[in-house]
Amino acid sequence: MSETMQATSNEPSPVWQKSVVPKGQSGLRALNERRILTLIRQHQQLPKAQIAKQTGLSAQAATVIINRLEHDGLLQRGEPHRGKRGQPSVPFSLRANGAFGLGIKIGRRSMQISLIDFLGNVRASLCEHWDFPAIEAMQRFTQKGLRAILSALDEEEVGRVSGVGVAMPFEIWRWSEQAGAPEDELARWKEFDVLAAVQKFTKLPVYLCNDDTAACAAELWFGQHRELSDYLYCFVGTFIGGGMVLNRKLHVGRSGNAGAVGSLPVLAGSGNAQLLDSASLHRLEKNLKQMDVDTAFLHARHSIWPDNLPAVARWLEEAAEGIVQAAISAHAFLDLDAVVIEGAVPDAVKQVLLHKCEQLLADADCRGLSPLRLLPGSVGADARALGCANLPLLAQYSL
């Protein structure tokens, strides 16, 4: 995560806003404990000697901390690895049931509440669809969903839930016309305190984050592109958005909105246009509705798109053109390893989009730039939900 996230709990995080922590609910681990947990999370498992070496702690200090984390149920030891000489090496890894995180993803077409364990496995998830984000519906579903998920846990598991992460679009009240939502209803979100509203339904700490930043964080922590140091992350949802990873850390900028690719201007005829106007699912939905095609499949939890849909081929062409423009611009400024493309679309559609982007990039005039890779996201369509459930785990157990 970003350097400022390595500060103490009293310093604000640029990644999320945080509610006032109820008395006795801080749960923040000591700095060296979080250093070790973060290191193990990155490498999946490590022996004590490697942990001491990579953290700069003495062998004795590392042993004391690791034993404490194991006693607290956050770490577990694996089978000893016997080398050619010396004592067997015992690897330590995170214990799945050591901690849990709750996440509430507030989207433009749906809302989702998820519970993940310490390894990022989804243990429970509930979803509700809507035509547009409505405050009263959000409050009802939050209260009902949190109660339902927590009631399925035993007493010990409830005690290991670290908090509630909330992820939602930046300035959700804007672009009412593109979203097909009543302007007056969306405008209510501008003054609505989401943190305070969610806090009414739980005694756990609550964290608020941009939804595409949360998706990017999920790719960083749980994805398969661990070899990448610097990349732009694009998420094709109702509105396209994104995030930035620099030096293997989530880079969010001064206001937490870095990587907002949807707001980038794109070359499209003679008018002014943003990337979200061409590379977002709302554009495809609008075109399909004009052809009297039922678009409910676009917002299904695990969507399967019908074959031979009209307008899809053209939308994919326009989306790819805009994404490649954004990719080249970001690469020119930041000299990236790659651009990772994810979305709330079936894998087959994502692969077609990626292939079209690769073709356009190959034909683009990139003189003066180093080669740039385009890669598929590895977390999947639920990246935003996974990312927001991970917020309390990051806040309390990571740097």
Rank of each mutant, 00 (worst) to 15 (best):
S162N: 11
G163L: 03
V164K: 02
G165D: 06
G165K: 01
A167M: 04
M168Q: 01
M168E: 02
M168D: 02
F170K: 06
E171S: 05
W173K: 10
W175L: 15
S176Y: 10
E177C: 09
E177W: 01
E177N: 12
P182V: 08
P182Q: 07
E183T: 14
D184A: 12
D184K: 06
D184Y: 09
D184Q: 13
E185H: 08
L186Q: 00
L186F: 01
R188N: 13
R188M: 11
R188T: 13
W189P: 10
W189N: 09
E191S: 14
E191Y: 15
F192K: 09
D193W: 09
D193Y: 08
D193V: 10
V194I: 14
V194W: 11
V194E: 10
V194D: 09
V194M: 14
A196P: 10
A197R: 10
A197F: 05
V198T: 07
V198A: 05
V198L: 07
Q199G: 11
F201D: 15
F201I: 06
T202M: 08
P205T: 13
V206C: 08
V206I: 06
Y207F: 15
Y207K: 08
Y207R: 07
C209Q: 10
C209H: 01
N210A: 10
D211H: 13
D212S: 13
T213F: 13
A214M: 12
C216T: 05
C216E: 00
C216H: 05
A217R: 11
A217Q: 10
A217E: 04
A218I: 03
L220R: 00
W221L: 02
W221N: 05
F222G: 00
G223L: 03
G223E: 07
